[in-house]
Design a protein around this nucleic acid. Sequence first.
DNA 1: TCACGTATCAAACAGGTGTTTTAATTGCTC
DNA 2: GAGCAATTAAAACACCTGTTTGATACGTGA
Lengths: 209, 209
Amino acid sequence: MEFQSQKGTTERILEAAGELFAESGFQDTSIRDICARANVNLAAVNYHFRDKEGLYEAILLQSFEQIQRAYPFELTGECPEKDLEVFVRMLMFRLLGKGRPALHGKLMAAEMSSPTGALDKLCEEAIRPTHELLVGIIRAIVGEAPENDLNDLAASILGQCLFYKHAQPVIIRLRGAIPVEDHEIEALARQITSFSLAGIEKYRITHEQ
Amino acid sequence: MEFQSQKGTTERILEAAGELFAESGFQDTSIRDICARANVNLAAVNYHFRDKEGLYEAILLQSFEQIQRAYPFELTGECPEKDLEVFVRMLMFRLLGKGRPALHGKLMAAEMSSPTGALDKLCEEAIRPTHELLVGIIRAIVGEAPENDLNDLAASILGQCLFYKHAQPVIIRLRGAIPVEDHEIEALARQITSFSLAGIEKYRITHEQ
DNA sequence: TCACGTATCAAACAGGTGTTTTAATTGCTC
DNA sequence: GAGCAATTAAAACACCTGTTTGATACGTGA
């Protein structure tokens, strides 16, 4: 007889593994750590998810659905400047937000710099569409331009956002802390958007004939 | 009797380990890999450098001297816009340049997202001074401003640069390649500088009374 | 009640890691 | 050339990893 509040084994594993993968990465998280936190037997991961990679992919899939529901890119297509602000804000929440909804963003950021076997699939299913979205916004502002230039501008924006995740350990040492509260994240998103709109505008002016 | 072309054991270890640490990180590089590439006995690393961390620190120290000689931040202090361009170009070469001189930049980038025990020391001796340099340039452009705002602007610039290193595996999948030739790196540095100067100017105009 | 598929468990396995040990070898000085 | 310290070498050690095994308990339908 189980307590109703006690979730099943697979759920407990998914929960514990998600937290550990997010804070320590795939490599540095051991199955023993996961099972200890989930309060399940060591063999449970292999039984329910075949192997460690299977568990990781299950978490990636689950968290992808969660993040799209929690932080969607709801663009109007009418005002690209406003769309950029939405894009940046949602991306920042995906990277810096608290709790389960932001899990996928953090796993993606980790995957970018320390890829596992899951990166190829992740790239095509999640990263490329997001990148296309951003390039579309930029194109709506600057008009037609060489694909390479649009990619560079997109990189400038993505780089500003991802920096706060990728360089987190350094930022904490240099500045003491990292934005965590919702209003802090929103303020940062506005600052990055404003900065980027100026950069994009400068490109447009420089390259119009 | 040794061939003159055959360097000593410690030099061969430093050379092999530098390459491996740069491309695979500290964790994913094993002492056995290093010794195999350096053609030395397995025990040599522990004998000459006490342990794996000792070797890593020796490489960090050695490559720090090399990078300062190869890619110095030679700022005039007269024209902050020009100084920013120099700063960005040197930083990009440190991150994307070829061969030994760029080793330290790559190790630093890796250290930022996946810190080892060496990060604290590295932060104080290399990263913080570089950050102060950049903040100084920005302050020269916008005038006095809250420290937090200057830090945000610095983060926007550093983020754009580091993105090309931190997201390298993804960029290669999305765009096919990453800038490697000197003229490509310089062009990218000019683009980032131009973009950033516009962003900084926008901040200055928005916040002047 | 019995048998069967599912799930859990403790234990062991096979492979890799950083490090240490102990002996052999080298190179240099007296 | 003998003696001595520094270096190299092969082997083993202790630990951690993901995974598998075989036994046991559970629940369900015949």
